[in-house]
Design a protein around this nucleic acid. Structure first.
Lengths: 291, 291
DNA sequence: CTCTGATGTGATAAAAACTCACACGAATGT
DNA sequence: ACATTCGTGTGAGTTTTTATCACATCAGAG
């Protein structure tokens, strides 16, 4: 089949269906109905004379050839997206977790905007992996729990220091001064980082301490909020509670210790040359260093 | 612009127009009228809000952005073509010059087909560069005058030996026994390799010999044919006249000397794993070694 | 100074893509 | 156990896109 007659739209529909494992999802991504995707895939299969998916009642599974084709097509479409984005540069998009956004970025955003009035900043909330090309992400702040995906380069921002924090009165009332004291306290956990307390015990050199949360919040910033309201103890990276400690809303009765993770900056490989990306990356590095 | 709404067909039309430097040529390649291409390009320019071509009365010249976009798109489309060709492997396509085909390949083709009955062989005539991906070439036989393009790997088949050849009677009549004798003879040249006689003189260590052809043929195989008919002297690689010499139709009164070029086999990078490609490459290597 | 060869464009035809509505079949939930 | 839900396939009809045709335009070639 000559390159001049490749059924491009069908290939795109197929690639989306294979990547998402669902015609329906692909249809949503492409902004059409599932029928349209189904027809595209069928047309491709007829053209190639081989099945690209195994059809199961509620799911489709790519065949070997289908999976192979889809992954190579994905690369090709990525390149195309990059090519177009170079002549049509979108806004600079920074991705970080809701917690980093609440407790670190938003408090500094006015300052950033004042210093960089020409940079149009778009924010994206996401705490784990993200497709830099498909979602047009320029920069991401992430913990090293996750690995930077292909197409992005990672660099260390800071090594996380972690420690239990709570309302000052709460610490006084319970008399918290050594790790064992926490066993009497109300432990607050986060669904997004369930192993946080265990990590801390390990970092302390006290892995035997069983710190199972009494209460689990969906987002980490809620845990901090709950701690600040006197509901118990949160285990927080210093970075995210420093302001509250300075203002006296929180205390860290046992201080902080070096945690197992670092905070990283991920930069979209194909955007490393863009001025606004470099500027913003530098700003993030400087702000982190100033902590 | 999100990847899900890239105007793929317009991008392909634009890429072709940019590559070929002409809307008309792109239209021919795509099998549509020039108007269709023109509209696609215009739609893209409106979408991007910037011109992709400078319009001149009888020509279009890509703008800086246009050229950049086109070259990156070309890569993306190449990948797509490769991806599809992996699930839809076409026939094995061997490209060589008309002369190599006439004088080397065709005489051996029966033998090849007998030994490899399952391989569907398609032949392509071309003596210089060729786009392995776009034209779906698997293998090419070329002299090292040309460099293998990106997407192909080159390997040496043989080092060319070159020498003047003519009809036996012609050599006798003129008494050809040393290089100077040729100044009395009728020199036949080829348009595709105008420097051949000069190369030979240099290879002999006699660069002062002015061997300007008295007659120039469009194809090299015509030169050999003319020499075999007693019209004069052709300068030929031994490879291409060995059969004629063996059968007595041609003689090489001054023998052969190592020429400046080698004969190479170019293999499409993305097809190196294909069995039929490996088999055919091995056959070519073996036949060359047997010369 | 006309001819030629390339591109641009309005009107219209053709083709492609999409939607709608319904069918189907098995996992899910009560 | 059985109705429900969820995801996919498809016939018929509609909308949207793409292409064609025919003509306009322009400047350099002959």
């Amino acid at each position: 089949m000559p390159i001049t007659h490749l059924p491009l739209n069908a290939l795109r529909a197929f690639e989306a269906a294979a990547r998402l494992g669902s015609m329906n999802a692909a249809a949503t991504e492409l902004g059409v109905t599932h029928g349209a995707v189904s027809r595209h895939v069928k047309a491709l299969e007829e053209r190639f004379g081989l099945p690209l998916f195994e059809r199961h009642p509620r799911a489709i599974v790519p065949t070997r050839e289908g999976a192979q084709l889809a992954s190579e097509l994905a690369e090709a479409f990525d390149r195309m997206q990059i090519a177009v984005s170079r002549v049509q540069p979108g806004p600079l998009t920074l991705s970080c977790s809701s917690t980093v956004m609440m407790r670190w970025l938003i408090p500094r955003l006015e300052k950033f905007k004042r210093a960089n009035q020409t940079i149009e900043l778009r924010l994206n909330v996401n705490y784990d992996n993200v497709d830099f090309i498909r979602e047009e992400i320029s920069l991401a702040i992430r913990t090293s729990i996750y690995r930077a995906p292909a197409g992005a380069v990672a660099e260390t921002l800071i090594h996380e220091e972690i420690g239990p924090v709570c309302h000052p009165d709460y610490a006084d009332r319970l008399g918290l001064s050594k790790p064992e004291d926490l066993l009497r306290a109300r432990i607050l956990g986060s669904a997004t980082r369930p192993q946080a307390w265990t990590d801390w015990a390990a970092a302390l050199g006290r892995p035997e301490l069983q710190m199972t949360p009494n209460e689990v919040y969906a987002h980490f910033y809620l845990v901090i909020q709950a701690a600040a309201c006197g509901l118990g103890l949160a285990l927080a990276p210093r970075l995210l509670v420093d302001d509250e400690i300075r203002s006296g809303h929180l205390v860290a009765p046992l201080g902080f210790v070096a945690g197992p993770y670092e905070l990283q900056l991920w930069i979209a490989d194909h955007l490393r040359g863009r001025v606004d990306v470099r500027t913003t990356a530098n700003w993030i590095r400087a702000e982190m260093r100033a902590m």
